[in-house]
């Protein structure tokens, strides 16, 4: 996925982005970080074509993305499930759009739940689940749509620290397992620790109107531990990018 010369302004005329350029490569977990209010979630919605840019374009495999598509699937910051559907039905929602036979829909949905570690919980309703389980359902629903790109908007923000840590440890393997057709994950977060723990590449968004001020590749071997000195150094580096008033592109 590639973003080329993207500008965007809100309806009230406020210009949010100017000349956003970024490239998310295949097989990479990409993070977008930036100060609060800089427009991280807005950028994610532009990538998913939920919003239309003022200028520039979002390309998937070289073709412009003009409207939302199951090929680019979104996991929201607020954990979204449908309370009138069981876990399996929630996941099946994204499979039904492919007009498959009922058995196949059930099979894919069950498999997606299994992938996120919720085998045996198919018949539970969201209100019978913890926040972590619900977010796993939301991830399973996105994965069941068989997207090429997964957009995650602060996916751990509404989980308690222990649950978030558990899900963070699982998520990379869930997303990039051999059964998944997923090519790239793009996550927005303000939590630098989780960004370093998960990402291969980090784009730093800053300024007003905001633009990409730096791109940082993280090559710390996985699994990554915050106790690792390299982890700490990376944390300092990202922090400095976020706090500097003017930053040159790397």
């Amino acid at each position: 996925m590639e973003v080329v010369d993207l500008d965007f302004r809100y309806e009230n005329g406020y210009k949010v982005f100017q000349d956003i350029n970024l490239k998310a490569e295949k097989g990479k977990f990409v993070a977008i970080v930036g100060p609060s209010g800089v427009g991280k979630s807005t950028l994610l919605r532009l990538l998913g074509a939920f919003l239309k840019p003022e200028k520039g374009q979002v390309l998937l495999h070289g073709k412009p993305v003009l409207r939302p598509t199951p090929l680019i699937s979104m996991v929201h910051q607020s954990i979204v499930t449908f309370p009138w559907m069981t876990a399996e039905e929630n996941v099946a929602l994204s499979v039904k759009t492919r007009n498959l036979p009922k058995d196949r829909v059930k099979e894919i949905s069950s498999h997606a739940l299994e992938m996120v570690g919720l085998q045996g919980f198919n018949d539970l309703y969201p209100k019978e689940m913890s926040g972590g389980m619900r977010q796993r359902v939301a991830v399973a629903r996105s994965l069941a749509a068989e997207p090429k790109i997964l957009l995650m908007d602060e996916p751990f923000a509404h989980l308690d620290e222990l649950t978030a840590e558990g899900l963070r440890q699982d998520i990379y393997n869930i997303l990039f397992n051999e059964d998944s057709p997923l090519e790239t994950v793009i996550m927005v977060s303000h939590n630098l620790t989780e960004v370093i723990e998960l990402s291969d590449t980090v784009f730093i968004l800053n300024g007003s109107p905001a633009t990409i001020v730096a791109k940082v590749d993280i090559d710390i071997p996985r699994p990554r531990s915050p106790r690792d000195p390299a982890f700490d150094q990376m944390l300092d580096r990202l922090y400095s990018y976020l706090t500097k008033k003017e930053v040159k592109k790397q």
Partner: peptide, 23 residues
Amino acid sequence: MPAEYNEIMRNLDMGFFRKMRYV
């Protein structure tokens, strides 16, 4: 309706009747 539901319906490219029935 939560804005996220709208986004999910758009994201999954759901048709009118499917949107009505499920969401």
